[in-house]
C-alpha cells in the first residue's frame, strides 16, 4: 500500500518531518496537554489524512505543522526549514511561497470578490500577473462565470472552490486542508474533494488533510489516527505486525 515507507534508503528529504511534538496550553488552574510526543514524516507528493474525533487535537496539529503556531516542545521541519526556529516573518515568507491552506469555514474575505480573494496570496508573494493566474484557477474550479461575485453571493460549495483556487494560486509545495468538506453536504463535499484531489495530483503537491470523514481519508495515500493528542498510523502498525 505504501511504497515510500518500504524504500527507506536513499530517498529524498521528506517534505515534512515532525519529531516528538508536544503542545500544551496553560489554563487558569492547570496545564492541558493537547498533543503528546507526535512524530511523523511525510514525503513529497504524498497525500496524508489525519483522522480523529472533535477535540482530539487534529486541528492544533495541523496549525503546528503549517507553522501557524509554535509547539511547546519538539521540532517541525517543513521543506527543509526548522519552522520552530524561524521567526514569525520567516515563517510568513515560507507560507507565502511554499504553503497553501483550505479551511473548513472557507475563510474568504467578505469585502473581496472571488477573483480578488484568489489574487490575494499572489499579490502577497509579489506575483507578476496575479489577475491572469487567479482567473485561470477560478475557471479551472468551474467558477469562471462568477469572478466578481462576493463570497456572500456564493453557495458553500462555491465558496470552498474559491478557497481551493486560492490555496493553489501560489503553486504551493504543500497544502494543508482543515476539514475541507466539513461544512458541505455529501454531494457537494464529494465534488469539492474530487476537485481537491485532482488539483493535488495535477500540481504534484503534498497534501495534509485533517478530517473526520473516513471516505475522504480513504482517498489519501496514508492515514493517521489521532486520539487524545496521540498520533498513530494504523497502516504502518499493520505492516509491522505482518
Amino acid at each position: 500500500m505504501n511504497q515510500m515507507t518500504n524504500v527507506k534508503a536513499d530517498r529524498p528529504a521528506p517534505m515534512l518531518r515532525v519529531d516528538n511534538l508536544t503542545h500544551r496550553v496553560r489554563l487558569e488552574t492547570d496545564t492541558l496537554t493537547i498533543l503528546q510526543g507526535v512524530s511523523l514524516e511525510i514525503n513529497r507528493g504524498e497525500s496524508v489524512a489525519i483522522v480523529g474525533r472533535s477535540g482530539s487535537g487534529k486541528t492544533t496539529l495541523l496549525g503546528l505543522l503549517a507553522g501557524l503556531d509554535t509547539p511547546s516542545d519538539g521540532t517541525v521541519e517543513l521543506d527543509g526549514a526548522m519552522i520552530s526556529q524561524l521567526s514569525e516573518d520567516e515563517r510568513a515568507k515560507l507560507r507565502a511561497h511554499r504553503v497553501g491552506f483550505v479551511f473548513q469555514s472557507f475563510q474568504l474575505l467578505p469585502a473581496l470578490s472571488a477573483l480578488e480573494n484568489v489574487m490575494l496570496p499572489l499579490e502577497l508573494a509579489g506575483s507578476e500577473a496575479p489577475e491572469d493566474r487567479a482567473r485561470e484557477l477560478l475557471e479551472r474550479v468551474g467558477l469562471g462565470e462568477r469572478l466578481n461575485h462576493s463570497p456572500r453571493q456564493l453557495s458553500g460549495g462555491e465558496q470552498q472552490r474559491v478557497a481551493i483556487a486560492r490555496a493553489f494560486a501560489s503553486d504551493p509545495a504543500i497544502l494543508f486542508a482543515d476539514e475541507p468538506t466539513g461544512n458541505l453536504d455529501n454531494r457537494t463535499g464529494q465534488s469539492v474533494s474530487d476537485l481537491l484531489m485532482e488539483l493535488n495530483r495535477e500540481q504534484g503537491t503534498t497534501l495534509v488533510m485533517v478530517t473526520h470523514d473516513e471516505h475522504l481519508a480513504a482517498r489519501c495515500s496514508r492515514q493517521f489516527h489521532i486520539e487524545a493528542g496521540v498520533l498513530t498510523e494504523p497502516s504502518a502498525v499493520e505492516e509491522l505486525t505482518h
Binding site: 501557524l68 514569525e88 516573518d89 510568513a92 515568507k93 515560507l94 507560507r95 507565502a96 511561497h97 504553503v99 491552506f101 475563510q107 474575505l109 467578505p110 469585502a111 490575494l120 496570496p121 502577497l124 508573494a125 486560492r166 501560489s170
Partner: peptide, 19 residues
C-alpha cells in the same frame, strides 16, 4: 472584526508582520 480577520488571513497566507 473584518480587518482583524483579514490581517490573520494575510498572515496565514504568508504576509509578513512588517508588511
Amino acid at each position: 472584526h473584518d480587518r482583524q480577520r483579514e490581517g490573520a488571513l494575510l498572515r496565514t497566507l504568508g504576509g509578513r508582520q512588517s508588511l
